[in-house]
């Protein structure tokens, strides 16, 4: 009996992991709380209560929803401004502060007339984080009167991201010192 129970105890958790598509984690407030019903009816289930330590994600989300009704940015403001500043030497094709995307037009530097660049930048979230921005640069060269795609050195994208982050840091420290 005992080895069978033991095997069951090992197998069942493993088996439960096979459900994949039809599977979800049962949240803590879906289990009964038997203090003769006294502690139940807590507002918002396990998210109730006053946060005394740490960042209240729910409150952040609520406030973001309250502020974001059409006017505010839905991405990090420092990263957004820094990306605009960094890419401002190129003409902008579109900038969507809600999706966090910035797309530029083709730009030909004065020093090299036979190549042109275009950049797409994504600001990924509300947090000011080093992985909060992605920049992708496209390059074409003029070959016998035709623009053809050509490679961009791998460092270009990350260099531009670094510039954005450095600018965001500047903006952040400026606003903090004010």
């Amino acid at each position: 009996m005992k080895p069978a129970l033991l095997a069951l105890g090992v197998l069942l958790p493993l088996l439960s992991a096979c459900g994949a598509a039809n599977q979800r984690l049962v949240q803590n407030d879906e289990y009964g709380d038997w203090r003769n019903g006294r502690a139940r009816n807590r507002p918002l289930g396990s998210n109730a209560g006053l946060v005394v330590f740490g960042v209240d994600k729910d409150r952040e989300a609520r406030e973001a929803a309250a502020n974001g009704g059409g006017s505010g940015l839905s991405v990090n403001a420092y990263l957004w401004r820094a990306t605009l500043d960094t890419l401002s030497f190129m003409p902008l094709a579109s900038a969507d502060p809600f999706g966090g995307t910035i797309i530029t037009e083709w730009y030909t530097p004065a020093s090299a007339n036979n190549e042109r660049f275009r950049a797409q930048a994504y600001v990924l979230g509300r947090q000011l984080r080093s992985d909060g921005v992605r920049v992708q640069v496209f390059r074409q060269t003029l070959d016998r009167g035709q623009w053809v795609d050509s490679t961009v050195s791998a460092a270009t994208n990350s260099d531009l991201e670094d510039k954005v982050l450095a600018r965001a840091r500047e903006l952040r420290s400026q606003s903090a010192s004010r």
Partner: peptide
């Protein structure tokens, strides 16, 4: 990753 939060809740009756 989420840093831990500490919440206070409870009941009075």
């Amino acid at each position: 990753q989420e840093a831990p939060t500490v919440r206070i809740g409870g009941f009075f009756r």
